[in-house]
Design a protein around this nucleic acid. Structure first.
Lengths: 185, 185
DNA sequence: TTGTAAGATGAACTGTGGTTCAGATAGGTA
DNA sequence: TACCTATCTGAACCACAGTTCATCTTACAA
């Protein structure tokens, strides 16, 4: 309904976002607007035509990751509803989140954000609802301790180590995840 | 053997360090030299008379915490050698480190630093040796899983949540620590 | 008490990084 | 093709934080 953007504008916006994804993933939000512009093959001014401020641009990138996190949660829920063991799905999900947020500054920021109470709704809410459902199933199926809450999940996801070798990551998960399992006793 | 400093110089150095301790603990290393000077009741130039650069000052404060961490480890070892159950001491130590580093930016920085390989020697080495001894005792006494290494301890300490309410902290520890205990089976 | 060098002061300097805007460029349409 | 305007460009601007240094102050020894 608004304005049909010019072709180069669309192209540049794409390039900017792509460059921002790459750089923010690798170096976090501390990258300079100059580097960003250079990486996108564009002048600084163009960044500001598309995003009023740096933090708007950063937020745009982070939101993409928040969306991926939510999507992945919903797929997990769907698989559970299709018959996949809920506890397995929960673990798979945790491993997935922990893995990307250990490699990717943007994802890490999202994960840590979950620890701060009262954040923006939509995505977080979607993810929370899906995960909660998965957890309920897992408890019902006897795989998950009944006193584990969504906050515990956030706590795990939010404290995952960053920038560690794969082996360390796995080790950390092996220390953390067993506590979630229901004691067969 | 060097120069007997003037009285006011000594006093100011003390004030600067004290202010730095407070501010860095509360706000991390992002505090400005101006705020620091103001808090110490001193002019900016004086900071630079005592510390050649901001990061020297910061490092001085962090090193103090590194020392506390090492000292505490050695006390734990002494208590073990005096007959205290090693697993209890290990847990007490972990709880202590996690608690201060969840409240104190400086301590947090030290704790995270343990995750980076090959850091400065002295303090880290002292702490590592003491903790290792405690762990060996704990394994011998059957309280600690025999495959837990000093790196696992660093992994726990380095990933502890920051700035969370006491209850969250406790919860996190309750999720993490049980994995360390030797299965009585 | 006085001389003097160590020390303190804080305005000014510098480098960095986000942001602006006047002028150049180039889609798109008639 | 020619024009109009959305868009791009990048030098300049500004705010902020670390650092310097010419000048003033003061501890303390003689």
């Amino acid at each position: 309904m608004s304005k049909p953007q010019r072709a180069d504008a669309v192209r540049n916006r794409g390039r900017i976002l792509e460059a921002a994804r790459q750089l923010i993933a690798r170096h976090g939000a501390e990258i300079g607007m100059d580097e960003l512009a250079a990486a996108a093959g564009v002048a600084v001014g163009t960044l500001y035509r598309h995003f009023p401020t740096k933090s708007h641009l950063v937020r745009a990138v982070l939101d993409e990751y928040a969306e991926r996190v939510a999507d992945e949660a919903e797929s997990a829920l769907q698989r559970v509803q299709a018959g996949s063991p809920a506890m397995e799905e929960l673990q798979r999900y945790l491993r997935w989140v922990v893995r990307i947020s250990s490699t990717n500054h943007a994802a890490k920021a999202i994960a840590e954000g979950l620890l701060q109470p009262a954040l923006d709704g939509d995505l977080e809410a979607r993810a929370a609802q899906a995960i909660t459902r998965v957890m309920e199933s897992a408890v019902r199926q006897g795989g998950l301790r009944s006193d584990i809450s969504i906050d515990d999940v956030y706590l795990i996801v939010g404290t995952a180590p960053y920038g560690q070798p794969e082996a360390t990551l796995t080790r950390w998960l092996d220390l953390m995840l067993p506590s979630l399992r229901a004691t067969s006793a």
